[in-house]
Design a binder for these strands. Structure first.
Lengths: 348, 348
DNA sequence: GAAACTCCTGCAATCGATTGCATTGACCTT
DNA sequence: AAGGTCAATGCAATCGATTGCAGGAGTTTC
């Protein structure tokens, strides 16, 4: 069987639907029908075609299929920095959910670097049927540009909000979660609270900051300028904040960090100077990354349902692509974060 | 300008090369030439075409292009579990390198679950021009199947070796690195050394184990069965190993962990029972993940050049795809790991 | 026994970009 | 001025899969 096949196709090239048709002595149309709606074809023909597919080792040519159907069955996931481990779980969830619905996933990173060309020119050339955007820093105008120039490209903003009610979004309750975090500290008796702020172009960062400020006000506490530190969501930002704190002399009794990485960096650096968490200072993080519960001390944090974000954003996007959901009635999912109390926070 | 355009194309659909041609009063062939080799076209025509492209908002249809050129300018990155943060840096490097050379990146995960269909049927249907495989657990036969059935698909095995000299690979010196790690412990005076082993289907795991065993023998030390623990490269495996150790009563003075995550889990769990690292036990990891140097204690580990792996594997794959490198002369890159001494290991 | 019906299959057009070959016309040479 | 050269452009086929339409075989109905 194998040998015969090889003799008949001496010049090796990937077999096409025509080759299968010839093999099974039917037309290409019939092969196509067997593959997409088997019930429309007689059983005997069907079996013959299946056998021919096996013999030739046929696999469909997606380019041709996409061209004909005007659909690539592919989504594009775009994030500012895929290198951040925070996205690991999300990427995994997105891929799994997409695969379940028959979609492939293209991944793009660092949109920010060259914001002019990235998305519109290179990526959106019928390679992807929809866009999953984890970057709130893109301005609304550009996105509207995307939607107006050609056909509107299905778009879901995930994790990081885009301040435009017309864009579908799947996010978490950043502001509320931040308030919850501060209230936890206040409940423990803390009154002197600092905050490490994430990159300011992210909407989520700003929401967390607003939540922090609101909760402080509600508790009748003052936000002290010298206890606010800018960061970029990595551990080095945490150590930098620690060094500023140490240099300034006067320490707060608690710090709310915009994410877990910065919290870990902070705790680590302070300990080098003998400031122990939680003995001398309480620290609460945000996200609940995998290592948080294994750290010393195990980190108190606001858990983000990352897997749910990835899964829901993907399924929403595919719903929109497939027209299950009306494009003009924006989906707005807001997932809740949970307070996970561990040992990095303690009553004063 | 904009208005005229809208009036002329009332039924909004993505413009094709034909539309651009009509706009510029040239043929589609000329537009194509302007876009791919501008120097072959008169300046005046060229400008007219560029203007038409701008006016219509034309973007190339990649499906049509792929079909015609039999090249998707896309590579597929496949890993057993993209969810592992270990891949973050790698994914980032792969995407960046690919983008630099004009390629997009499709990402697939969990090949292991359904090893029969995943790769060959769904993915390799002319969607990707090459495969970047981070999974040594696939059996050689299947991969050869991929190469024999149709046209050989360019393939590079990365990080995790595939035991087949004919397959291109970009890996690290796992065995040597493991020996280096053990020698570090031996140099510190340790003689009672345990090992947490990664998932056994990974070739890298086995190499590390062999390195461990060889180094032990060379140092005249015995490998004790009860100090070998199976793991799956996550922190829970580390805590499980710790619990086994605690239950057994007799502790080794040092442990070599197959990766950093398991090392962190081990250290964390042992400390709960009052066994302190490095006071009571030394632990060395493998990889040097981002959190390693911020942990308490900062983790001694064998640093893997993850970014280099991603970058080199990608550039090699694209070289092969583009025929820069002969397919039949396998590339075998072996990158070296470095010992990073921190504080989790100490002289006995 | 013929009309009406169903079911299966093939024909051929179509999706949009690329490229070998043919054509045009400008310019140069003698 | 006629013939030759060469660069610029257009024509039309091509890549492979899908699908509306139509034809043909077989079945039902009156």
């Amino acid at each position: 069987m194998r040998e015969r096949c090889e003799l008949m196709v001496p010049a090796r090239k990937t077999p096409t639907i025509q080759d299968v048709a010839r093999h099974a002595s039917v037309s290409a149309a019939t092969v196509s029908r067997v593959l997409s709606s088997p019930e429309r074809v007689t059983e005997t023909t069907r079996e013959r075609v299946y056998a021919a597919v096996r013999d030739t080792g046929y696999t469909i040519n997606q380019a041709a299929r996409s061209l004909r159907l005007k659909a690539a069955r592919t989504i594009l996931m775009a994030a500012p920095n895929i290198g951040n481990p925070f996205y690991s779980t999300i990427v995994d969830a997105v891929i799994r959910e997409a695969a379940e619905r028959g979609y492939s996933v293209l991944v793009a990173s660092r949109i920010g670097d060259d914001p002019n060309r990235w998305l519109s020119d290179y990526m959106l050339s019928n390679r992807a049927d929809g866009l999953l955007l984890f970057d709130g820093s893109l301005d609304t105008n550009r996105l509207h540009g995307l939607r107006d120039d050609g056909v509107a490209l299905p778009l879901v903003a995930a994790y990081d909000e885009i301040p435009d009610a017309k864009i579908h979004s799947v996010i978490t309750d950043n502001r509320l979660a931040a308030k919850r975090a501060i209230r936890h500290l206040v409940d423990l008796g803390h009154t002197e609270i600092g905050h490490i702020i994430g990159p300011s172009r992210n909407q989520s960062t700003n929401e967390r900051f607003i939540g922090f400020a609101e909760a402080m006000q509600e508790a009748g506490l003052v936000v002290r300028e010298e206890w606010l530190f800018p960061g970029t969501y990595n551990m080095e930002s945490g150590t930098a904040a620690a060094e500023h704190l140490l240099a300034s002399g006067k320490l707060p009794t608690a710090v709310f960090s915009g994410n877990d990485e910065m919290a870990l960096g902070l705790i680590h650096r302070l300990r080098l100077d003998g400031i122990d968490c939680p003995r001398d200072i309480s620290v609460i993080g945000f996200d609940d990354i995998a290592v948080a519960r294994f750290f010393d001390p195990p980190l108190t944090t606001m858990r983000q349902p990352r897997e749910d974000i990835g899964r829901m954003a993907t399924s929403s996007l595919i719903d929109i692509i497939e027209g299950v959901v009306p494009e003009d009635e924006p989906i707005h999912v807001i997932l809740t974060s949970d307070l996970v109390v561990r040992e990095s926070t303690r009553a004063i």
